[in-house]
Measured scan of single mutants.
Amino acid sequence: EFTQISGYVNAFGSQRGSVLTVKVENDEGWTLVEEDFDRADYGSDPEFVAEVSSYLKRNGGIKDLTKVL
């Protein structure tokens, strides 16, 4: 089950073990991109978060400006 990723309007994530599946949706709710990120592939949590965040930004993730990150 996908849940909204904090700080984004149209990005959602689903966690299974160490694998986080993220997706970005358009205004109609269609999935634009979907990608798996395995936490085990990264040396640290900040590196993992930075990679996921960068992916979302590159692929149309819209920041939720009503929330302070």
Score class of each variant (00 low, 15 high):
residue 64 D to E: 10
residue 9 V to P: 03
residue 67 K to D: 13
residue 16 R to F: 06
residue 11 A to L: 02
residue 46 P to S: 15
residue 26 N to C: 09
residue 29 G to D: 03
residue 6 S to N: 13
residue 40 A to H: 08
residue 38 D to Y: 03
residue 55 Y to P: 01
residue 2 F to R: 07
residue 64 D to L: 08
residue 60 G to E: 02
residue 49 V to A: 11
residue 57 K to T: 12
residue 39 R to A: 04
residue 16 R to C: 12
residue 13 G to T: 07
residue 55 Y to Q: 02
residue 13 G to D: 01
residue 53 S to N: 14
residue 68 V to R: 09
residue 56 L to P: 03
residue 42 Y to S: 00
residue 43 G to Q: 10
residue 41 D to A: 10
residue 17 G to L: 04
residue 52 V to D: 02
residue 35 E to C: 15
residue 42 Y to E: 00
residue 51 E to S: 12
residue 24 V to S: 02
residue 32 L to S: 07
residue 38 D to N: 09
residue 43 G to F: 08
residue 63 K to C: 15
residue 57 K to C: 15
residue 66 T to P: 07
residue 44 S to T: 08
residue 62 I to T: 05
residue 65 L to M: 11
residue 62 I to N: 04
residue 31 T to W: 06
residue 3 T to M: 10
residue 6 S to M: 11
residue 54 S to R: 13
residue 61 G to T: 06
residue 34 E to V: 13
residue 21 T to L: 04
residue 45 D to A: 07
residue 12 F to M: 04
residue 5 I to E: 04
residue 61 G to W: 05
residue 30 W to I: 14
residue 56 L to Y: 01
residue 61 G to I: 06
residue 36 D to S: 15
residue 30 W to R: 13
residue 61 G to M: 06
residue 52 V to R: 00
residue 56 L to Q: 00
residue 44 S to V: 02
residue 9 V to I: 12
residue 28 E to I: 10
residue 43 G to Y: 08
residue 65 L to P: 13
residue 36 D to C: 13
residue 41 D to K: 11
residue 15 Q to F: 15
residue 25 E to W: 10
residue 35 E to N: 10
residue 49 V to Q: 12
residue 12 F to K: 06
residue 28 E to C: 15
residue 49 V to P: 00
residue 38 D to L: 02
residue 29 G to N: 04
residue 69 L to D: 14
residue 45 D to W: 15
residue 9 V to C: 12
residue 9 V to S: 08
residue 7 G to I: 06
residue 62 I to M: 07
residue 35 E to D: 07
residue 1 E to I: 14
residue 28 E to R: 10
residue 33 V to Q: 06
residue 1 E to D: 10
residue 19 V to E: 00
residue 35 E to W: 13
residue 8 Y to Q: 05
residue 27 D to H: 11
residue 45 D to L: 12
residue 33 V to R: 07
residue 29 G to M: 02
residue 21 T to H: 11
residue 12 F to S: 04
residue 26 N to L: 08
residue 17 G to S: 02
residue 61 G to L: 09
residue 55 Y to N: 02
residue 62 I to A: 04
residue 48 F to A: 01
residue 11 A to G: 03
residue 66 T to E: 14
residue 21 T to G: 00
residue 12 F to N: 02
residue 3 T to Y: 13
residue 38 D to T: 02
residue 26 N to F: 06
residue 65 L to I: 12
residue 22 V to S: 00
residue 44 S to A: 03
residue 5 I to T: 03
residue 7 G to R: 05
residue 54 S to T: 08
residue 26 N to S: 10
residue 14 S to M: 14
residue 15 Q to N: 08
residue 25 E to Q: 14
residue 34 E to H: 08
residue 69 L to C: 15
residue 16 R to N: 08
residue 13 G to N: 03
residue 31 T to L: 09
residue 51 E to A: 15
residue 12 F to V: 05
residue 18 S to K: 04
residue 67 K to H: 13
residue 4 Q to D: 04
residue 28 E to K: 12
residue 66 T to D: 13
residue 25 E to T: 15
residue 45 D to V: 08
residue 32 L to W: 08
residue 65 L to T: 13
residue 15 Q to G: 05
residue 10 N to V: 05
residue 26 N to G: 07
residue 61 G to Y: 05
residue 42 Y to T: 00
residue 39 R to W: 07
residue 20 L to S: 00
residue 16 R to V: 07
residue 19 V to R: 05
residue 18 S to D: 04
residue 34 E to W: 12
residue 39 R to C: 07
residue 59 N to I: 07
residue 22 V to M: 00
residue 6 S to E: 12
residue 9 V to F: 07
residue 12 F to T: 03
residue 7 G to T: 04
residue 40 A to S: 10
residue 26 N to M: 06
residue 58 R to G: 06
residue 22 V to I: 10
residue 67 K to W: 13
residue 16 R to I: 06
residue 62 I to G: 02
residue 39 R to N: 02
residue 46 P to W: 15
residue 40 A to N: 12
residue 4 Q to W: 08
residue 25 E to L: 15
residue 67 K to P: 14
residue 57 K to H: 11
residue 65 L to V: 11
residue 24 V to N: 01
residue 3 T to A: 09
residue 62 I to W: 04
residue 40 A to L: 11
residue 37 F to D: 00
residue 8 Y to F: 10
residue 26 N to H: 07
residue 43 G to W: 06
residue 65 L to D: 11
residue 22 V to T: 00
residue 60 G to R: 02
residue 8 Y to N: 06
residue 53 S to F: 13
residue 36 D to F: 09
residue 17 G to T: 02
residue 16 R to L: 06
residue 35 E to A: 15
residue 64 D to K: 08
residue 37 F to Y: 01
residue 42 Y to R: 01
residue 65 L to H: 11
residue 49 V to K: 09
residue 20 L to F: 10
residue 60 G to F: 09
residue 61 G to A: 15
residue 45 D to R: 06
residue 6 S to V: 11
residue 69 L to V: 14
residue 58 R to H: 08
residue 50 A to N: 09
residue 10 N to S: 03
residue 13 G to L: 09
residue 67 K to L: 14
residue 50 A to C: 13
residue 68 V to F: 11
residue 21 T to M: 05
residue 9 V to A: 07
residue 27 D to N: 11
residue 39 R to F: 03
residue 67 K to I: 14
residue 49 V to Y: 15
residue 41 D to N: 12
residue 51 E to W: 08
residue 26 N to Q: 04
residue 67 K to C: 15
residue 15 Q to I: 13
residue 25 E to M: 15
residue 64 D to V: 11
residue 20 L to K: 01
residue 44 S to Q: 01
residue 30 W to L: 13
residue 51 E to D: 11
residue 21 T to C: 07
residue 22 V to F: 02
residue 38 D to Q: 02
residue 1 E to A: 11
residue 50 A to V: 05
residue 19 V to G: 00
residue 50 A to L: 09
residue 25 E to H: 10
residue 4 Q to A: 11
residue 8 Y to E: 03
residue 35 E to F: 12
residue 31 T to C: 10
residue 13 G to E: 06
residue 52 V to M: 03
residue 35 E to G: 08
residue 60 G to M: 05
residue 48 F to D: 01
residue 2 F to G: 05
residue 45 D to K: 04
residue 53 S to C: 15
residue 4 Q to I: 14
residue 6 S to H: 11
residue 11 A to C: 14
residue 44 S to H: 02
residue 43 G to H: 10
residue 34 E to K: 11
residue 19 V to F: 02
residue 58 R to S: 08
residue 27 D to W: 09
residue 4 Q to P: 12
residue 53 S to I: 14
residue 65 L to G: 10
residue 33 V to F: 12
residue 55 Y to G: 02
residue 27 D to L: 12
residue 7 G to V: 05
residue 64 D to C: 15
residue 50 A to T: 07
residue 33 V to A: 14
residue 21 T to K: 09
residue 44 S to G: 05
residue 63 K to A: 11
residue 38 D to C: 06
residue 61 G to P: 04
residue 38 D to S: 03
residue 13 G to Y: 14
residue 59 N to P: 01
residue 41 D to Y: 08
residue 30 W to Q: 14
residue 35 E to V: 13
residue 2 F to I: 05
residue 59 N to A: 07
residue 38 D to F: 03
residue 20 L to P: 00
residue 36 D to Y: 10
residue 61 G to K: 03
residue 12 F to W: 12
residue 55 Y to M: 06
residue 38 D to M: 02
residue 68 V to P: 13
residue 64 D to M: 09
residue 49 V to H: 13
residue 17 G to I: 04
residue 69 L to M: 10
residue 30 W to M: 14
residue 41 D to P: 02
residue 31 T to K: 06
residue 12 F to A: 01
residue 23 K to P: 00
residue 13 G to C: 15
residue 56 L to N: 01
residue 41 D to M: 10
residue 53 S to A: 13
residue 35 E to Y: 13
residue 5 I to K: 05
residue 18 S to F: 06
residue 67 K to E: 13
residue 57 K to A: 13
residue 15 Q to T: 11
residue 59 N to W: 14
residue 44 S to Y: 02
residue 67 K to A: 12
residue 32 L to Q: 07
residue 40 A to M: 09
residue 8 Y to I: 05
residue 52 V to A: 01
residue 52 V to L: 09
residue 6 S to K: 12
residue 56 L to I: 13
residue 33 V to N: 08
residue 49 V to F: 15
residue 50 A to G: 06
residue 51 E to V: 15
residue 14 S to W: 14
residue 14 S to F: 13
residue 5 I to D: 03
residue 12 F to P: 00
residue 60 G to N: 04
residue 6 S to A: 12
residue 50 A to H: 09
residue 52 V to I: 13
residue 49 V to N: 11
residue 35 E to R: 15
residue 38 D to A: 02
